[in-house]
């Protein structure tokens, strides 16, 4: 080991590990800036700053009724339409999560180490150990494949493969979310405290009992909190899928923006904001209840 004196001489400049890390991050940001060829001049709004001014001016008075003429007779009231879009956003997200959660649980269990290691006292045969390891490896590969393609890319793939269909929108959200849930669940299972599992094992419980009563309950609070957080994310994703033609908030937001109905855009933005606020406070409360 190096003594204090020598280490002082070895330090080339007066920065510790922290300083070097921060310096490296700032340098990476500067490199990225130059690599992208950005200049602050590009930040001036094009179109004579008019769009930006009009758009932000509209923030104070979101539309409560259709903006502009040309609304067909007998059209639903505007606010009802916003509500409908919000409900549909929630519906798609909920349906996707109802697929992602059970499958993610199973895959997460298969991908975890704790689900397979079982009881160290019973000597598993080499064959069964190899089998377990290969199933675990295959599941992990599957999970990586599912989650490394973004939900919007899945949506685009399904659009090309099937055409516009609402069930494929649900699938597009469900696939990457299943992968992410499975990955995080497997990590949480592996990191759960093992004390109660060891106790159960010592009293002679079977591996299934050890898992169900020793390990799963210790990981469950974190898993539930995380699942709800993903539900929040799913609602955001579902809203964005509207940009690809599915009838969620994004669809109407885009249409209103392209028709230059900025006040309507703000109504949709506020709907999104309220949805996010409600979910976040709900999720915070749930987490407090769980992860004390």
């Amino acid at each position: 080991m190096v003594g204090v004196g020598t280490s002082r001489q070895r330090r080339p400049f007066p920065l510790g590990r922290r300083g070097r890390t921060i310096l490296a991050i700032v340098a990476a940001g500067l490199v990225a800036w130059f690599a992208l060829g950005l200049s602050p001049a590009q930040l001036v709004p094009t179109g004579g700053a008019g769009i930006a001014r009009d758009f932000f001016a509209a923030a104070w008075r979101p539309a409560l009724d259709y903006e502009g003429a040309g609304v067909p007779d007998g059209a639903r009231p505007f606010l009802l339409k916003v509500l409908d879009a919000t409900v549909r956003t929630i519906v798609f997200a909920t349906a996707a999560m109802s697929l992602a959660l059970p499958i993610g649980l199973v895959l997460g269990f298969l991908a975890s180490s704790v689900g397979w290691s079982g009881d160290p006292a019973t000597r598993a045969s080499r064959l069964s150990r190899t089998l377990a390891r290969s199933v675990q490896g295959a599941t992990r590969t599957l999970i990586i494949g599912m989650r490394s393609v973004h939900e919007l890319l899945w949506a685009v793939l399904f659009l090309v493969a099937f055409g516009l269909n609402t069930a494929s929108a649900v699938l597009a959200i469900a696939i990457p979310y299943t992968g992410t849930l499975a990955k995080v669940f497997s990590e949480m299972l592996d990191e759960a405290p093992r004390d109660s599992a060891a106790g159960l094992r010592a009293t002679g419980a079977a591996p299934v009992q050890v898992f169900l009563h020793g390990i799963l309950p210790r990981a469950l609070p974190d898993m539930t909190a995380y699942a709800f957080y993903r539900y929040e994310c799913a609602i955001r994703s579902s809203a964005i899928l509207g940009f690809f033609g599915y009838p969620t908030l994004g669809y109407y937001l885009r249409a209103s923006f392209e028709n230059l109905h900025y006040r309507e855009v703000w109504t949709y933005l506020y709907a999104l904001l309220i949805l996010a606020l409600v979910l976040e406070s709900w999720s915070t409360r749930l987490r407090q209840r769980f992860v004390a």
Partner: peptide, 20 residues
């Protein structure tokens, strides 16, 4: 609360095409 995609969509309309 506003998703990245929506921010990008709005900013693109205002700032024009660049990486910004």
């Amino acid at each position: 609360a506003v998703p990245e995609y929506v921010w990008a969509f709005l900013l693109l309309a205002m700032l024009g095409p660049s990486a910004w």
